[in-house]
């Protein structure tokens, strides 16, 4: 069985790769393209650590075949910052100490960016439900939620919260 030749776009750049039909997009990202920012925490769509944005919608790359990327647009954690300028969600994760071990962080940031792409004014409850598919065992979610809401405020052009120092 020959490999599939897939032509796609990852983080704004045209990418071609070869993969077998059963390889997941996460396997392709990590093992073929060496984009290891997307993590495998469960392999069954329950933890969200492998979240990527596919044609504008956040999905688990572990539940997507690499061949399905043909002709699509994929954004991974490596494509969230613009050059050396962090996305507001990334910046606010740092300011609010919204990560401890940092393993779930790429998935959370990708999912949070997808939320703010759709809704710049989410409530705390909407944010919590949107991110319910991103497990974090370290933070208890408190600082994560604060970071996302604060990033939303900044993206709305408001001053944002200052973290007391």
């Amino acid at each position: 069985m020959s490999k599939h030749h897939v032509t796609t776009n990852i983080n704004g750049e045209p990418v071609e790769f070869l993969c077998e039909a059963q390889q997941t997009m996460l396997d392709v990202l990590r093992d073929e393209l060496h984009l290891t920012g997307s993590k495998e925490g469960c392999g069954s769509g329950d933890c969200g650590a492998c979240s990527v944005i596919l044609d504008g919608k956040v999905v688990c790359s572990c539940l997507m075949l690499g061949v399905e990327a043909e002709g699509r647009k994929v954004i991974t954690i490596e494509g969230i910052a613009q050059g050396d300028k962090l996305h507001p969600v990334q910046q606010k994760f740092l300011e609010h100490a919204a990560l401890q071990c940092g393993f779930c962080t790429p998935g959370l940031i990708v999912a949070a960016k997808a939320l703010l792409d759709e809704n710049l004014n989410p409530t705390e409850e909407e944010t919590r439900y949107w991110l319910a598919g991103n497990l974090c065992r370290c933070t208890g979610y408190d600082k994560v939620i604060r970071a996302v809401l604060d990033a939303a405020a900044v993206m709305r052009g408001e001053p944002g919260a200052s973290v007391s120092t």
Binding site: G45, G48, S51, L54, K57, V58, V59, C60, L63, M64, A111, A114, L115, Y129, W130, L131, A132, G133, N134
Partner: peptide
């Protein structure tokens, strides 16, 4: 059905 990510698919 599942998370936001699952809803996407």
């Amino acid at each position: 059905i599942g998370s936001t990510q699952i809803q996407g698919r």
